[in-house]
Simulated scan of single mutants.
Amino acid sequence: MTNAIPKPFIELADVHKSFGTFPVLNGVSLCVRDGGVVCIIGPSGSGKSTILRCINGLTPINQGRIRVGEFQVEKLRTDREFIPLRHQVAMVFQQYNLFPHRTVLQNLTMAPVQVLGEKPAEVTERARSLLAKVRLTGKENAYPGELSGGQQQRVAIARALAMQPRVILFDEVTAALDPEMVSEVLSVIRDLAREGMTCVLVTHEMRFAQEVADEVFFTDRGVIVEHASPATLFKAPSDPRLKDFLDKVL
């Protein structure tokens, strides 16, 4: 008897999303296994970031289905219904979105204490270990404005991890960084991927996508044009739109 293939942890089926009369997603379907690392690439305006925002319910969809674990995302309505989902699905944005008037440690501990009701002492201990994980030990009492962009983005990643999620969505997290800061952020993400964290990344860092991804999805005009392992997608693209895109970015 063969072992059954485990159900994907994230599943999008025929997802459509329009902003007003402008269609952004035109029937997107994709799956991410538990512990998988998926990169979404494509030209600007192709719907990449919208896919991430739909997965965690920040952007409601017009049609289709999105399942994350046991959550049927499109059926969630209230803030109370979204809290358990957001506990499992963290998101790190291009802009760091840290509270400027709070210290680094306070930025990490606020949500677990105030939203999840965890004990402050336990959360603080976890936050300190997460700062060590992202190589920021000693910055606990610094304010975001005292940190470089790369350091702020690593704080944002640690803040996402403080919620103990099953999945982290990364939305072009290196796009606003100076080149020398990109590698320190990618290094943290690389470590998370190796440790088995389920990661979905929208990225322009093609070499990084080739290195860390199990599967790469290429989007254009709101559809998944092609998806494959990095070795296949980057070395032997079949769709002319993907070939043209890779010629420009590689």
Results as ranks from 00 to 15, higher is better:
T232D: 10
G138K: 00
R207W: 10
L242R: 08
M163A: 09
E195M: 05
H204F: 04
L201D: 01
E211D: 12
L161S: 12
A193M: 01
V167I: 13
L233G: 06
T198P: 00
I168L: 01
I168C: 01
F217L: 14
E215N: 07
A158Q: 07
G150C: 05
E172L: 13
L161E: 00
V202G: 07
V216S: 05
Q152T: 09
I189D: 03
F170W: 00
D239W: 08
M206C: 02
G145R: 07
S238A: 15
L242I: 08
V167Y: 01
M197D: 03
L186D: 06
A213N: 12
E146M: 12
A213L: 10
G150E: 01
A162N: 02
T137F: 08
V225T: 12
G196R: 08
G149D: 08
F208G: 00
S148C: 08
V212E: 03
L192S: 05
I224Y: 12
I224N: 11
V188S: 07
K243G: 05
M181Q: 13
Q151V: 13
K139R: 15
V173M: 01
P179Y: 15
A158C: 09
D214H: 14
R241G: 06
Q152N: 12
Q164A: 11
A231E: 13
T198M: 02
V200C: 04
M181S: 13
D220H: 15
V225S: 03
E180N: 02
G145C: 13
M181V: 10
R221H: 07
F208C: 01
G222P: 08
A228T: 04
D191G: 15
L147F: 03
S187M: 08
V200T: 05
F234D: 07
A193T: 12
M206Y: 08
H227E: 07
A156L: 03
Q153F: 03
D244Q: 14
G150I: 04
L169Q: 08
L233C: 11
L161V: 08
E226L: 03
L177D: 02
D191W: 13
A213W: 08
R166Y: 13
P165S: 03
L192A: 02
S229A: 13
V200E: 02
A142H: 09
E211H: 05
R221K: 11
A236N: 15
F217S: 10
A228E: 03
K235N: 14
L147H: 06
K139A: 14
S187D: 14
F208D: 01
A162Q: 02
T203D: 03
F245P: 00
K243T: 07
Q151D: 05
I157G: 11
V200L: 09
T174P: 07
D191M: 14
A193H: 03
L242Q: 02
A193G: 07
E172A: 14
D239K: 06
V185H: 09
V200Y: 06
A158H: 00
D247Q: 15
E172P: 09
E172Y: 05
P144V: 01
D220L: 14
I157P: 05
D220E: 12
H227D: 04
N141C: 15
R166F: 06
F170K: 00
C199G: 10
E226W: 06
G196H: 06
A156P: 02
K235D: 15
V223P: 01
M163D: 05
M181D: 04
A158S: 10
V188M: 04
F170D: 00
K243V: 03
D239Y: 11
M206R: 10
T232C: 05
M206N: 00
